[in-house]
Design a protein around this nucleic acid. Structure first.
Lengths: 269, 269
DNA sequence: TGTGGTGGTTCACTATTTGAACCGTTGGTT
DNA sequence: AACCAACGGTTCAAATAGTGAACCACCACA
């Protein structure tokens, strides 16, 4: 079960399972903060689809309100139907709402930016963040973006506690396998991951993993601090608060940390 | 262009355009507050799909995080990916966020429950609402639900300003065509719609339509008041505030009311 | 008047989706 | 314990639905 990769060394698996609806959903993922709306041709090119195919998919998405066309250029953007789905999801399982108070408390206690992400479909998705009012200079973030595994503390923390197969996939894709592998390994032994100036210059990230009910890693909680004002004391404080908050959110989400990590955190406290 | 219904009296058009992704997206619409999660068989039955088909669609939705399976019964529920999409949509076009202050002000000024819905894919979707703190007894609402056209003031208001073809479709589906048609006609002449004890007993609804940039009706703003405390004065107040707030939200959304309604509202003020 | 860019449509080809029947479990009844 | 029904999930021949090169009409620029 651990090694599902039967094609030895097959480094390129560019096309995954490609159903029609998969392609349609991939289209939705093309919209970002940087490009919240785009035309048919651009979408087709970005998705690697024929224009006709892309058009049909978009039409179908539009008929259900998942995207909408706007302006004289008839560009596409995400539609209002997603709002209903999200509201329904949050009402059924209030992931974000439940974690927000803890997140705010963490930001307040550390004086730095707190940041929550969770694993969805193999990617690390920003769920929420909270700023502290203490300092004028702070690390700012964009909501609803994907986090790169290899350059963030959250990414390392999650990778450290992923099933072996998936962790291997991420490790293989790392540009600097040794460095990233080291961070992951360190997280496995200490219970937290740390980066400095990898995601962004002069930003120090410290992260702990979060877990679901099956003790599988489901996300990460991080503090992104301005490196210039970091001190050993502050670092100790962040670690303490982070472990505490991480345990809380995991509990709020109905999850349980794996035994190994639970003891690690207990000993540290 | 006005009358697209070429099959005279054709009352049953049960199957619309049915692409594969349409079916998949329809699955998402089956989740409600009442049933936030359901098993494979139930979903297949509710969607009118074969179990195998339904399973494949769900698997594909799950691979993109649009749904997730949970618990020993492996039931499905909406997944975390919808959160990202909604956050992105709100960031690109802050429909809800922009309207919230106006909505709250409306609730405060009238002392009743204010309610905002918009038209998506031919249905009226609850977008937000605001309560007033003035009275202990108030009309309460569920977010992220669909509103029936025929029994709500919002439904009548929207229908009154829809393109003829769509309005006819809704009118034809009305259980009491005369009553509903009367409400719609009244809204066309006065600029607002009103219901009493239709959606729920002892609830009086008053609604005005909202418009997009092309002066097409895109939603409705309503006040749901407890009928027992309604007075002519209160009703006048609600109407004034409602027109004002409706014009504001339409403007905030970058829309413009059709000239006919604009003059109606000007004269009333 | 050409050239290259849109958004959108057509239609023969075929690859994808479909659904009856199947399996292995589970949980309640007789 | 045997039975039954309903569950989630899988198989595979049959056929339906998706695909993409080539096609408009349009616009802007030169």
């Amino acid at each position: 079960m651990a090694r599902m990769c039967q094609f030895a060394g097959g480094p390129d698996q560019p096309a995954q399972n490609m159903g029609t609806v998969g392609k349609a959903l991939d289209l939705l993922d093309l919209f970002t903060h940087q490009q919240p709306q785009m035309g048919l041709s651009l979408l087709a090119r970005a998705a690697g689809l024929n224009k006709a195919t892309c058009h049909r998919l978009l039409t179908e998405l539009e008929s259900r309100g998942m995207v909408e066309q706007v302006g004289p250029a008839r560009e596409y953007r995400l539609g209002p139907a997603v709002l209903r789905l999200a509201a329904l999801r949050e009402s059924a399982v209030p992931t974000r709402e439940a974690a927000m108070p803890v997140l705010r408390r963490l930001a307040e206690a550390t004086g730095e930016t707190a940041h929550l992400s969770h694993l969805v479909a193999g990617r690390l998705q920003t769920l929420a963040f909270a700023y502290s009012a203490r300092h004028g200079m702070k690390v700012t973030m964009e909501d609803a973006d994907f986090l790169p595994f290899h350059s963030t503390a959250s990414g390392a923390a999650v990778t450290a506690f992923l099933p072996e197969a998936e962790a291997a996939r991420i490790l293989d894709a790392a540009p600097d396998a040794a460095l990233f592998g080291g961070r992951v390994e360190s997280c496995r032994t200490h219970g937290w991951a740390e980066t400095l100036s990898t995601f962004e210059k002069d930003v120090q990230g410290i992260a702990v993993p979060l877990f679901d009910a099956a003790s599988a890693c489901s996300g990460a909680l991080a503090v992104a601090a301005a490196a210039p004002r970091m001190t050993p004391d502050l670092r100790r404080l962040i670690l303490t608060e982070l472990r505490q908050a991480g345990a809380e959110i995991t509990a709020l989400w109905g999850g349980t940390p794996p035994e190994s990590l639970a003891t690690l955190w207990r000993d540290a406290a």
